[in-house]
Amino acid sequence: MKKYIQKSLMLSAIICIIITLVSFLCFEYREEMKLNFLIVIMSFLGIGIHYFTAYTFYDSFLKELVCKYVLVETMVLVIGIFSGWFIKTNWWMSFVYVTPVFVLAYLLGITQLKRYVQAINLKLVEKKAGQSYEE
């Protein structure tokens, strides 16, 4: 079920990007296109932040998590203020948007990580069993 939801979400993202891109190239530029393009740019930068913090703070999970949240929040705040998503006095609204996305992305990441670790451990056990049998 998880994989089904993941794939359908991925498909919806592809549909949004392609429709926006085709509309942008064939028709006139409209304001809602800007939002889609900004989401694509933010996702690109967000993944960059994810890899950067995981690489830099590989030995401290808490540092990684805090740094990641601060960087993502700053990015959304800066992009949001410049593109008029929220006015300067309403800047705290960015926390309302960022926190649920951050928590969901974190939970998805942890689930996938646990799956990888399980698969690795299973393979290691199989390898050891194979080696013992050969000996």
Partner: peptide
């Protein structure tokens, strides 16, 4: 040894 989450996919590929 501490394992970085960034490298977990690479480890999986190498083991499999």
């Amino acid at each position: 040894i501490i394992v970085s989450r960034t490298y977990i996919l690479e480890i999986k590929r190498k083991i499999f």
